[in-house]
Computed example of a mutant assay.
Amino acid sequence: MRFIASLAITAGLVAAPFAAQAASLHTDWEKYKATRAFNHLSADGQRAMVDILNAKQVLDAGQTEQAIPALYDATRRLTAAGKANAKFMAAETALHPAPQHPVASTHVPGTTPVTWIPVGGEIVGSETLAPEKKAAIATANSQLQAGNTQQAAQSLQVVGEDADFILALAPLEQTQGAINRASVFTEARNPREASAALQQALDGLVFVSEDFAETAIPAQGGRNAAPGK
């Protein structure tokens, strides 16, 4: 009996490192999947969306002068995003919006191919997730909205397979047009109309699944680290 007990203890001691290694590999794989998904994002496109959100917040507060630099940066960065590799041409009808974030029922998708820029994303999880995983997803989404993809991938390590990543695509020319209108209204000291133009840009986003991103959108590797100024 002592031999059997000793054998069981030995087996447990041997199995423990393998179990720890398997858990480590699983964590590394989940981190890799998140990083791979985020690598489809356009760094300049992400920055442009942050600029748009910042400008809209300022305009909603009734300020115009402070919104002008953000609108200028958004225009410049979208132009750069349109020249980079993280873009593709497609008709909106071919995008197949993610079920977690459908377009408005009144929206009529365009049938003419246009340029799309991957400008952001959202992590979604089920309502049955543990509170700590829901908190991690909320943190990661805030980090994504701020353009901090590396931090978002780190936050998602505790979530594992219990979350899906959906990608936000912006129609380049339509978004540029909305920013141009917002700039005109801003310079005319009309913050309400300027904010409405930026809302049109945000409403034009289409969210697609990670599977769609894998097949249609070029990955940018390490170049899409947390963007700076």
Rank of each mutant, 00 (worst) to 15 (best):
residue 38 F to I: 09
residue 98 A to F: 06
residue 94 A to F: 00
residue 220 Q to M: 13
residue 60 D to V: 11
residue 118 P to V: 05
residue 39 N to I: 00
residue 48 A to T: 01
residue 47 R to T: 12
residue 50 V to S: 08
residue 120 G to K: 01
residue 217 I to P: 02
residue 226 A to V: 08
residue 67 A to N: 08
residue 112 T to F: 10
residue 148 N to I: 02
residue 169 L to C: 07
residue 65 E to S: 13
residue 23 A to F: 04
residue 16 A to E: 04
residue 29 W to N: 14
residue 23 A to V: 04
residue 49 M to Y: 12
residue 62 G to K: 05
residue 126 S to G: 15
residue 13 L to W: 08
residue 181 R to E: 14
residue 57 Q to C: 04
residue 52 I to A: 08
residue 146 A to I: 07
residue 139 T to V: 12
residue 11 A to T: 10
residue 62 G to D: 06
residue 186 T to R: 00
residue 147 G to M: 05
residue 157 Q to A: 15
residue 209 S to K: 07
residue 104 A to L: 11
residue 56 K to W: 04
residue 178 A to H: 11
residue 148 N to V: 10
residue 20 A to Y: 11
residue 105 S to H: 14
residue 17 P to W: 07
residue 115 T to L: 10
residue 168 A to H: 08
residue 25 L to P: 00
residue 167 L to H: 05
residue 109 P to A: 08
residue 16 A to S: 08
residue 181 R to V: 01
residue 24 S to V: 00
residue 99 P to D: 13
residue 23 A to W: 10
residue 14 V to L: 12
residue 104 A to C: 00
residue 210 E to D: 15
residue 227 P to M: 02
residue 224 N to H: 07
residue 72 Y to C: 01
residue 122 E to D: 06
residue 135 A to C: 03
residue 118 P to Q: 06
residue 17 P to D: 07
residue 75 T to S: 13
residue 150 Q to P: 01
residue 110 G to N: 04
residue 10 T to F: 12
residue 159 V to W: 03
residue 75 T to L: 01
residue 12 G to Q: 00
residue 132 E to N: 15
residue 180 N to A: 15
residue 29 W to D: 09
residue 59 L to V: 04
residue 78 L to S: 03
residue 2 R to W: 12
residue 68 I to N: 03
residue 27 T to G: 14
residue 208 V to M: 03
residue 170 A to E: 03
residue 84 A to F: 04
residue 86 A to N: 05
residue 111 T to L: 08
residue 229 K to M: 06
residue 202 L to K: 09
residue 91 A to P: 04
residue 44 D to M: 03
residue 137 I to P: 04
residue 60 D to L: 13
residue 28 D to S: 09
residue 108 V to H: 10
residue 79 T to L: 00
residue 212 F to I: 07
residue 51 D to S: 13
residue 60 D to P: 04
residue 16 A to P: 03
residue 157 Q to V: 14
residue 39 N to V: 00
residue 34 A to K: 08
residue 198 L to K: 01
residue 148 N to A: 12
residue 219 A to K: 09
residue 198 L to Q: 02
residue 14 V to F: 03
residue 114 V to A: 10
residue 7 L to R: 09
residue 38 F to D: 06
residue 215 T to C: 00
residue 152 A to K: 08
residue 152 A to L: 05
residue 9 I to R: 14
residue 220 Q to E: 09
residue 154 Q to K: 13
residue 129 L to M: 12
residue 127 E to W: 09
residue 143 Q to F: 00
residue 133 K to V: 02
